[in-house]
């Protein structure tokens, strides 16, 4: 990632049409972040419609939207859920009391409860990699290049190029959360 000190706003652009449901992103995430069996930080929704020969099958990757106004952060009673200046929404595990209010407040059901630790967990945009200048594991591994991760404030970046030249939507904008995952149309 670009030079330090400059203001950043991380976001993810997804081109769902390229997705073939191989779930490499899910596996890479689990391996990178040690996500427990049965829990997921990211997932792929599948929709089938119609009958042969008129049919449609779509795949829709989902995960934490790292919202502009995250409702999970707002409701957290201890401040364990927080947003970094670069937009990444994280959880301070030692401050999490496990009340699960954030899970109820998240419109995207992006959070899961870790019974073994008694805390809530979710996608971190692989902050441990991003801070080293690497890409999140799901982005790096995606074989069909569905995912583009980058800095919204970088005017010359690939993210800005895509969001300027392509049409896109965000999910459930009516909740006012300001999700930062952009789905290309």
């Amino acid at each position: 990632m670009a030079d330090k000190g400059k203001k950043k706003r991380y976001a993810l652009v997804l081109d769902s049409k390229k997705c073939m449901n191989c779930k490499a992103c899910v596996v890479a995430c689990k391996a990178e972040n040690g996500v427990p069996v049965g829990k997921f930080r990211n997932w792929i929704d599948e929709e089938k419609r119609g009958a042969y020969p008129k049919l449609l099958m779509t795949f829709d990757p989902g995960q934490c939207m790292h919202c502009e106004n995250p409702s999970c952060v707002r409701v957290c009673p201890t401040g364990a859920s927080y947003q970094r200046p670069d937009g990444i929404v994280l959880i301070n595990y030692s401050d999490c009391i496990g009340c699960r209010y954030c899970m109820i407040a998240c419109p995207y059901n992006a959070r899961y409860f870790r019974e073994d630790l008694g805390v809530v967990d979710k996608c971190t945009f692989c902050v441990q990699r991003v801070d080293r200048g690497q890409l999140p594991a799901c982005v790096e591994t995606c074989p069909s290049k569905v995912r583009v991760f980058g800095d919204l404030d970088d005017a010359n970046g690939e993210l800005q190029a895509l969001l300027t030249t392509r049409r896109y939507l965000v999910k459930k904008p009516e909740t006012g959360n300001g999700p930062q995952l952009y789905y290309l149309l």
């Binding site: 999490c96 009340c99 699960r100 008694g118």
Partner: peptide, 8 residues
């Protein structure tokens, strides 16, 4: 009901 009751 908390995940970590002793952290209340």
């Amino acid at each position: 009901d908390l995940g970590n009751w002793y952290r209340f």
